[in-house]
Simulated scan of single mutants.
Amino acid sequence: MTHPLDAARDPIPGTDPDWRPTPGTRTADRIQLGDFLRRRRTALRPEDLGLAPGTRRRTPGLRRDEVAAMANMSTAYYEILEQARGPQPSASMLAGIATALRLTPDERHHLYLLAGHAPPTPAEPADYVDPGLAYTLDAVAATTPAFISDDLSNVVVQNPLNLALFGSFADRPGHEKNLTWQWFTSARWRSVLRSPSPQEEEATSLSYVADLRATVTQRGHDPAAATLVSDLREASTEFAEMWDRHRVSTLHCPTKTVFHRHVGHLDLDCVVLASPLSRQRLLMLQPVPGTDTSDRLRRLQLLISDGQSAATP
């Protein structure tokens, strides 16, 4: 007689039937995944989830069929996951399991890694500012133009030197606060961030696109990311062409030259610090060694301290 689990060895929608252990999904990880699921399932009390305790439960915790039902998958498929067999679960299946097992954010992160997926990053409130990045932003305020953005490049907060150089972005509506949007739709913004050569300008464009491509995947193609990409594709043929190249990389920004009407040209290198605790990152513009940019930034800081209007380059 065919064992009930044999059917689960056939391809299941949302899974990869040819999944084999890789450096990211080792056999040990599959065993650990099964053990993790079993232990989290048996640690839950039925009454915590609004289920009747019942009198016929032979073991503590939930039954496999109860978890499978809440995760919107077959009992047979959930069983083979606990037994460290079968195809790799999709990200959407893992999301269902995490919800069914009432996993904490740390446990959810662990679940995705064991299953060979990049853990989704949680969304933050619109007014959230990462405290560690905010501390660093304030610490460098006297010498370094800097700002904090989210992973989609929406500006969250700027320090005074950054405001003096570029004007306010954080309080702009919609896409107007998004630096990728500004780069591909605003000729004025590109004129402010002068690139040394057409090649450097193209490299900056590709960096924005490759970073956004990686972020969209990390976010699980959520509505905010999908809308930004769709609107950018419609607004910029350059963006659309580069998006279709499917480049992926973390954000880096080449040396920029900024002209400010009060202090002149500033040659700036960009340093990006990503927070391990949020989706946000800090971008700092540092003087290029061997230039007089440090002196010009000090002059700009004096203008700010004296209360003079230094905003807008």
Rank of each mutant, 00 (worst) to 15 (best):
P4G: 04
I12A: 04
T15Y: 10
W19S: 14
R20N: 04
P23S: 13
P23Q: 14
R26D: 13
T27K: 14
A28Q: 15
D29A: 15
I31D: 11
I31C: 13
D35M: 12
F36Q: 03
F36Y: 03
L51W: 08
G54E: 00
R56K: 08
R58P: 00
G61A: 08
R63K: 11
D65S: 15
D65Y: 07
E66V: 08
V67L: 06
T75F: 02
E82F: 01
E82S: 08
Q88F: 10
Q88A: 14
S90A: 13
A91V: 11
S92G: 07
M93L: 08
L101M: 10
L103K: 06
L103N: 04
D106G: 07
D106K: 11
E107A: 07
Y112I: 12
L114N: 06
D138V: 05
A139L: 11
A141G: 04
T143G: 00
A146S: 14
A146C: 06
F147E: 00
F147K: 02
N154T: 11
N154P: 00
V156T: 06
V157N: 02
A164C: 06
A170K: 06
D171S: 10
R172N: 03
R172I: 00
G174E: 13
H175Q: 08
H175A: 13
E176N: 10
K177F: 02
S186W: 01
P196Y: 11
E202F: 07
S205D: 05
S207W: 00
Y208H: 13
Y208G: 02
A210R: 03
D211Y: 03
L212E: 00
T215W: 06
V216F: 07
Q218S: 12
G220C: 04
P223L: 14
L228T: 10
V229W: 02
L232I: 09
L232D: 10
L232P: 04
S236K: 13
T237H: 12
T237G: 07
E238Y: 03
A240M: 06
M242N: 14
R247P: 02
T250K: 14
H252E: 15
K256N: 06
F259V: 08
H265T: 03
L266S: 00
L266Q: 01
V271R: 01
V271E: 01
S278I: 00
L282I: 05
M284A: 15
L285E: 03
L285H: 15
P287M: 03
S294D: 15
D295Q: 14
L297I: 13
L297D: 09
R298N: 14
R298F: 09
R298A: 15
L300R: 05
L300P: 01
I304H: 09
D306K: 09
G307I: 03
A310Q: 09
A310H: 06
T312D: 15
P313T: 12
